[in-house]
Each structure stands twice: as C-alpha cells, then as structure tokens.
Amino acid sequence: MLPFKLSHVTAGFIAMLVGYTSSVAIIFQAIDRLGASAAQANSWMLVLGLGMGLSTLFLSLRTKMPVLTAWSTPGAALIALSAGLSLPEATGAFLFCALLLIATGLSGWFDRLARLVPDTLANAMLAGILFSFGMKIFDGIGTDAALVAVMAAVYLALKRWAPRYAIAAVFLAGLSYVALTGGFAGARLPLALAQPVFVMPDFSVPALIGLGLPLYLVTMSSQNMPGVVTLRGDGYEPDIGRAITVTGVTSLLLAPFGGYAFNLAAITAAICTGPEADDDPATRYKAAVFAGAFYVGVGLMGATVIGIFVILPPALVLTIAALALLGTIGNSLSAAMSARDDREAALVTFMTTASGVSLLGIGAPFWALVIGLTVRLALRRKSPGQAA
C-alpha cells in the first residue's frame, strides 16, 4: 500500500499551480523594472521555486503539518512599482529584508501577536482572502464558459460519488477539454535547466529604507499574518517563530540570485490544510510535501515552466483553484459566525478583507484585523460581574 494518497498528489500539484499562475506575471514585471537580463530572469524563477520547495519540505517534514511557503506577492508588486533602483541596490534591500525576517522569527514577538487575534476574526479574514480568490471563477466564465461548465459538471459528479478524487478529475477534465478543442495546438516549450546568476549587492541607504523596509512590512502584514491564520483555521499550531526564521534564512541565502523574499503561504496553504487534501488532518502534511517537491521541479526547469504557464488558459487555473478552495471557504465562514457576540466584528473583518482595500501600501488583511478588532472592542458585552 502506498504511503500517500492521490488527493495528496493532487492538492500539492494544484497548490503549486495556483502559486505560480496567480502571481507569476507580477514577478515578470518586477524583473523587468530592475532591468534584469534573460539569464537573470531565469535565475529568479529557479531560486524562487527552489526556495519555496525546500523551505516547504523542511517545515512540513519537521513539523508533520502542512506548512507551505510562498514568494511575497505584494513584495513583488512593490518591486515592480519601485523606480530608479538598480538590480544590485535592490539585492541589497532584499538581504536587509531577510535579516529583519530572521530577527522577527528569533524574537518570537510575531507569534505572540498572532495569538491575540480571536479565532472568529482570524477565520473571517481567511474566508475573505479565499473568497476574493474563489470569486475569480466568474472571470473564467466570462472568457471560456464551456470550459468552466465542463469542469464544474465533473466536480459535482465526483463530489457526490467519489469526493476524494473530485479535484484530480476536474483538472484532468479541464486539460482534456483544452487539448480536444485545440487549445495547445502549436505550443512549443524550451527544454533547459535554469542556471543561478549571482548579483553582487549594493547596500544603498535609500534602497534599504525605500524598498527593504517596506518589503519587510508588507510581507509580514499581508503574507505572514494570513499564513498563520490559515494554519490556525484548520487546527494547526506550528512554531511560527521558527517558520518565519526559516523563510528569512531562505531569503538571505537566495536573495543574491533573485529570491527576494519568502513567507508563509495562505491561499496555496489552504489547498493543503483543508479536507480536500485528506480526511485525516494528521496526514495532510503529505500534500504539502508533494507541493514542495513540485516547486523544486518547476524551479529547476526555469524557462520551460514559464512557457507552460503562458499556454494554460486562465479560466482553467481560476476554476480549479476556486473549486479546490470551496471546502475551506465554507468551514472558515461557519467558524467565523459561530460566536454570536463576535458575529458583527467577524462580518466586518470578512467584508474588509474581501474588498481588497489597500492603505499606506499595506494590504486588506492587515486593515481587516485592525477594523475587526476595533468593532469587537466597541461592541463587546460586559460580563455579569462588571458594573453597569
């Protein structure tokens, strides 16, 4: 008997697929803004895949929990919007951010802060993050309604008769439909292993303050906090300080080659922490192990992987991600609304997160917690022992 299930392989593969396709375009924009060469661009894709894969493998195997890591998507957007920085100056800023991440992980303060967030609000934030992503299935309907309909029909059929294999069947059905309708006709993929390219960092004070510090702040508030919430939402309590330290060390080692910042994953982690990955929470870490292995594999292939993600229809990726997250979205919403006294605060937290609002360069999840905690404090009922 195999030591893993098909659902582990499927969840790991979909997590990798979503991790790349959801934000790889932003990575390309960041690379272009810094004036990187084609070889340096391939180096970025290599080390980003290796960094996510190896850190995910280490944390998941060490903790026996589905702890996934990811590149910092808001960090990539920040790089893409930066102006006047050379690649060596940006590399120096990446190293500075990595040192801040390591210091944060070793201090343990972020772990203590995360535990102050009530479970209801944490689940509401997670539901808002995943809801925004799941809603993109309707973008897929607008571009290729027939493909989405085929995948949805297969999902409903398998969900009723063989739920464990539903997501795998949906993905295969989507690929088959695209192939039969000529979607892959004429596609050619370069087959070559990527090579790392070292960039000597230049520690410029304006770059450290203008890019390194903001990169650290958005990675912590918009990535690591949702990542913690995702794990907690499905009942996992890893050593958050150690996990952030691992992502910081990974960033430090790979920054000169293009690994600008790594953090705990949220959306991709939810694919591996939920019931779709495995009915048994104790063995869901195997889905994360497969995700890590897939990350390593696609990272090594560099330009080939870029070509694959270019030819996959966006509707296919959006649909498979949305269907894979349905269970986690439902569970998170249910948990968020379970406590009557916290219901309004949780609802506001969910709505703020789902809105995608950004203030001062900080994303919606952070502000959702700030606003939700404020509402909860304002509406908290006094206990019977308190004076009126």
Score class of each variant (00 low, 15 high):
24 V>Y: 14
341 D>I: 03
307 G>P: 09
17 L>Y: 11
154 V>L: 09
302 G>C: 01
259 G>N: 07
345 A>P: 13
353 T>G: 15
227 G>L: 07
159 K>M: 12
68 L>G: 09
256 P>C: 07
278 D>N: 06
248 G>M: 00
152 A>W: 05
91 T>W: 00
94 F>G: 06
63 T>C: 12
128 G>L: 06
271 I>K: 01
383 S>A: 14
156 L>F: 14
259 G>D: 01
33 R>D: 03
347 L>G: 13
18 V>E: 10
281 P>E: 02
348 V>D: 03
252 L>T: 11
72 S>V: 06
357 V>P: 09
361 G>R: 03
127 A>C: 04
289 V>D: 00
240 I>K: 04
39 A>K: 11
10 T>E: 02
232 R>E: 00
61 L>C: 14
339 A>D: 12
119 D>P: 12
348 V>R: 07
130 L>F: 04
8 H>L: 03
66 P>T: 01
240 I>H: 02
107 S>M: 08
194 A>R: 03
230 T>V: 14
217 L>K: 06
123 N>A: 01
174 G>R: 00
106 L>Y: 12
19 G>Q: 02
145 A>R: 07
180 L>D: 11
282 A>C: 02
260 Y>D: 11
242 R>A: 14
22 S>L: 10
92 G>A: 04
239 D>N: 15
242 R>N: 08
346 A>S: 12
50 L>H: 05
130 L>C: 02
277 A>V: 04
300 L>Q: 05
5 K>V: 07
209 I>V: 15
192 A>L: 12
232 R>T: 09
185 A>M: 05
77 A>G: 13
258 G>F: 01
285 Y>V: 03
19 G>H: 01
288 A>Y: 05
381 R>G: 15
262 F>G: 10
324 A>Q: 08
202 D>Q: 13
115 R>L: 13
378 A>N: 03
384 P>T: 00
45 M>N: 10
98 A>H: 02
77 A>P: 13
140 G>L: 03
269 A>W: 10
307 G>D: 12
53 G>F: 00
149 A>N: 08
163 P>Q: 04
113 L>F: 15
140 G>P: 13
141 I>V: 14
66 P>L: 10
261 A>L: 12
237 E>H: 13
253 L>G: 10
4 F>Y: 11
360 L>C: 11
357 V>Q: 12
164 R>I: 09
311 I>E: 09
189 L>D: 08
375 V>S: 06
137 I>G: 06
152 A>M: 09
381 R>T: 14
323 L>E: 05
373 L>F: 01
330 G>V: 13
284 R>I: 04
319 T>A: 06
31 I>N: 04
353 T>M: 08
388 A>M: 08
295 Y>P: 08
156 L>I: 12
126 L>V: 15
149 A>E: 02
378 A>R: 08
218 V>H: 07
256 P>F: 12
344 E>K: 07
331 N>V: 11
250 T>D: 08
211 L>W: 03
375 V>T: 05
189 L>F: 14
294 F>T: 00
208 L>M: 13
278 D>W: 04
346 A>D: 03
330 G>D: 09
60 S>W: 00
233 G>I: 07
289 V>Q: 05
356 G>L: 02
149 A>L: 14
